[in-house]
Design a protein around this nucleic acid. Structure first.
Lengths: 342, 342
DNA sequence: TTGAAAGCGTTACCAA
DNA sequence: TTGGTAACGCTTTCAA
């Protein structure tokens, strides 16, 4: 095994001091080292296949060029997609990503964040879970740069990049109304996070503004940890009752997937028995016999902006918070039924 | 902003040396520091919210407790799923994951690996791309522990965890034969990686052993970078010809997704016009009007074993290579047609 | 039982 | 233009 080459080794071989080698290799043209010396050093560095030890650099500089990414679950296509965009964007700026999945659990998220702080990440991009307010406050107190994505806490000023969930849900449900539905169920996660609240409020606002009855029992709130059961019960509660709904708005991809399976199981047909609109993309949406109408989030923009804001703050801690709310698009397909012209 | 607490700060506050504090905090019970002293130090450490600087520890110890994960594309559900399993497993053992996507490009993979080596990762878990043999050899020369997953290089002894691709593909195609298909097309990536070769060979072996004609032109090799076009052409070349095939074996999830879209576009029906079997799971497979029969890879086992082998080698560099080939399961559903009893 | 000091691989200040 | 050396925060050997 060839031992790893150090500055010391190069210095010895060339016959100069470590400092000189460091100058040449880290400053490039800027250094005041003579050209011949520079060339010689670079040549030897290449010969020995010198690779600087980033850990040592980091200890010295206090910067690791590492970003901690905390998402709910990297295996969820929505987050995997975002992760990929963030990865590419971060790489362009010389940053590496360390990632972890919080499973929407505050304790787990807290453990991960502490862990990554010890690892001296330069900043975080976080999909905050319910109940993680203290963690976010802690980051602020410690002056560790971070950007929240997908959700944020209204009462905690911070950087964030989210989408206009209210507006998107409004559009989605309005579509269901235009196609003639008067009784519309909502299946959403039952947590108190703004993004979900926004979607629920947007959906309800659409109904109210179109003078539809808003029945409390048509809102089914699902627990992330028991999604399977809960959605089945929710769907049954909406469709297998005295006065069933004629359409359902799913507030997320995974909710829709579970919901569609149950609708299939009940032998109901989309969109005639029940119309559907969902949030987020999904491979399955394209292949469903009645392609699903959905809200398409601008993930690329979201990821890019998040990285940009984070890196800007890392470079200039005094820069001040930035908030962005991006518009989402409604992709209309068959599952919501046809608009009736009356 | 509270400044970060260091060992020095604790030492000063308690009135002892840095060394003593280090003993107490890192050795726990093992240290020979008196109980009262220990208590006092721990108390102050908590007060000051001391968090050890892992970078400094790493520089000293030469270990970062970080694993570099290089996959083809983290946004691909197959890899995202594996990443999640590896993340959990690594976390249990105290390791963090740094990940990057190679896009199946050797140059990119090389850049990532060098980058991560500089970052002093303790080891790698890699999905090697075509043409990355030199990179793997380099890791061996540098004695950097690594485990290849999904694929490996036959001519380079190393750790790896893969599945029995030959056997899995054999089973898959045999199924198509049992359901009465005599002309079977193969859509696979056209690279020289063992996993793809294994799948193609397995598929062909099944045909040969059942005395079916194996037509060269029924094997369509797809370029990863032009998958969209290539699959369309491939499907057309199999189905819109003089003597069309009656069934298609897709060697990966993404190939199947593209293929299904084209089959739909041609107005053909699965499984009557064309039967389908694919590799890998996919949400879309469940929702296709004719649920797709597929090969289910044991991802959990694969991820867990990979981490285990890697961490074992990190702990004991002399341990020797380990190779694992796991069995995959064929999940039979409608897309392959019904077995005809003749 | 406690502490001084060397050292991990770099960088950068200050001198030469 | 070049080099000695302190410093980054921690661990660990050796001595007290």
């Amino acid at each position: 095994m060839k031992k790893k080459a150090l500055l010391k080794d190069i210095a010895k071989k060339v016959g100069v001091s470590i400092a000189t080698v460091s100058y040449v290799l880290s400053k490039g043209k800027e250094s005041k080292v003579s050209v011949e010396m520079s060339e010689k050093i670079k040549k030897v560095a290449k010969e020995l296949n010198y690779q600087p030890n980033q850990i040592a650099k980091s200890l010295k500089s206090g910067r690791t060029f590492t970003i901690g990414l905390v998402v709910a679950d990297i295996s969820n296509p929505f987050f995997a997609h975002i992760a990929r965009i963030i990865e590419d964007e971060a790489a362009k700026l010389g940053y590496t990503l360390v990632f972890s999945s919080s499973d929407e659990r505050a304790e787990k998220s807290w453990g991960l964040i502490k862990f990554l702080i010890n690892r001296q990440v330069d900043g975080f991009i976080i999909v905050p879970t319910k109940g993680s307010e203290d963690q976010i406050k802690h980051l602020k107190e410690q002056n560790i740069p971070f950007v929240l994505i997908d959700r944020y806490f209204q009462e905690i000023p911070s950087n964030y990049v989210v989408i206009d969930n209210f507006g998107a849900a409004y559009k989605a449900v309005e579509r269901l109304i235009v196609t003639g539905n008067k009784k519309i169920g909502i299946i959403a996660y039952g947590n108190s996070l703004v993004h979900m609240k926004g979607r629920i409020k947007g959906a309800m606002a659409a109904m109210e503004n179109h003078n539809l009855k808003v029945n409390e029992s048509w809102l089914k709130e699902i627990n992330f940890s028991s999604i399977g059961e809960d959605v089945v019960n929710g769907i049954n509660g909406l469709l297998l009752v005295e006065e069933p709904v004629t359409a359902i708005f799913f507030a997320s991809n995974s909710l829709a997937i579970h919901g569609m399976k149950q609708i299939d199981k009940l032998g109901l047909k989309v969109p005639n028995d029940v119309a559907i609109v969902s949030f987020d993309q999904g491979e399955a949406f394209d292949f469903y016999y009645s392609p699903i109408t959905y809200i398409q989030q601008p993930l690329t923009e979201l990821g890019k902006e998040a990285v940009k804001i984070l890196v800007d703050e890392i470079s200039d801690p005094e820069i001040g918070y930035k908030q962005m709310s991006l518009e989402a698009k409604l992709i209309v397909r068959e599952s919501c039924g046809k608009a009736s012209l009356r």
